[in-house]
């Protein structure tokens, strides 16, 4: 099964890093596409991101190379005591900075993927924080972070808005907080009251919304 040249051997032993990255990427993509919960989608996004980071870092690996930090004998400010004694000098020799030769370059791993992934990780944290904040705001407004329930609620809010614009503008002027999204706040406050009073109501609603879901998608 693991003999030379077989597909499994190639995938699981020779190219294990690529295999893991593809599997992680598929898990993340699947979570982002099929999960209805926004938080689960975000988890999928993070897994996807991790896959890309793993891909880049595994490309930066170089055989018989060390981390991209100069060793003592290449250090621009380094001194090497043994070397100095060999030359008949005492107290070590300070090396000035000098450009590395081609075979010396092979001693260090590629710094570029590490720099790019450092950037990607930091930006990933920033975007994840922003996305979580959006999820919390959506939950405050609609009382749910399930995508299908959200779609139904948004549709209902839109329908109400298009039915009676006059009544809506009245309510919005009477409410300070509703001035930005007149339709949404009204509906969401109704929703919230029903949800907060009885958790079983949401469950039954969920069952209903599942049936309605294809309509909402169209």
């Amino acid at each position: 099964m693991f003999e030379e040249g077989s597909v499994i051997n190639e995938l699981l032993i020779e190219r294990l890093n690529y295999f893991i990255y593809v599997v992680l990427l598929m898990i993340g993509l699947h979570a982002m596409i099929s999960k209805r919960n926004l938080i689960k989608k975000l988890i999928g996004m993070s897994i996807f991101q991790t896959a890309i980071i793993l891909f880049y870092v595994s490309i930066g690996v170089k055989d018989e190379a060390t981390i991209p930090i100069y060793k003592a004998n290449h250090d621009p400010h380094g001194s090497h005591v043994e070397h100095g004694e060999a030359n008949g000098l005492t107290g070590g020799v300070l090396y000035g900075p000098k450009a590395l030769k081609k075979e010396e370059v092979q001693e260090y791993a590629n710094p570029l993927p590490h720099v790019l992934m450092l950037t990607a990780i930091v930006v990933g944290v920033a975007t994840l924080g922003l996305a979580l904040a959006l999820c919390q705001r959506i939950y405050q407004g609609y009382g749910t972070i399930e995508e299908d329930e959200l779609l139904v609620k948004i549709e209902r809010a839109d329908a109400r808005k298009s039915l009676s614009p006059i009544e809506n503008s009245k309510t919005s002027s009477s409410r300070k907080s509703a001035s930005q999204k007149p339709g949404l706040t009204k509906v969401s406050s109704v929703m919230k009251s029903s949800i907060s009073t009885n958790p079983s109501v949401t469950k039954s609603k969920k069952a209903v919304t599942h049936k309605k879901q294809p309509k909402g998608k169209k």
Binding site: I59, G60, K62, D63, E64, A65, P68, I69, Y70, H74, D75, P76, H77, G78, P97, K98, A99, L100, K101, K102, E104, V105, Q106, Y108, A109, N110, P111, L112, P113, H114, V115, L118
Partner: peptide, 29 residues
């Protein structure tokens, strides 16, 4: 693989080779 495109590219060789001369910083990253 030391001959992989990422590792053998002139950019990465330049960063590894001349960071010490250009900036005297030991940590290339």
């Amino acid at each position: 693989d030391p001959q992989s495109p990422a590792s053998s590219s002139p950019v990465s060789s330049h960063f590894i080779g001349s960071t010490g001369v250009d900036t005297e910083v030991p940590n290339m990253v």
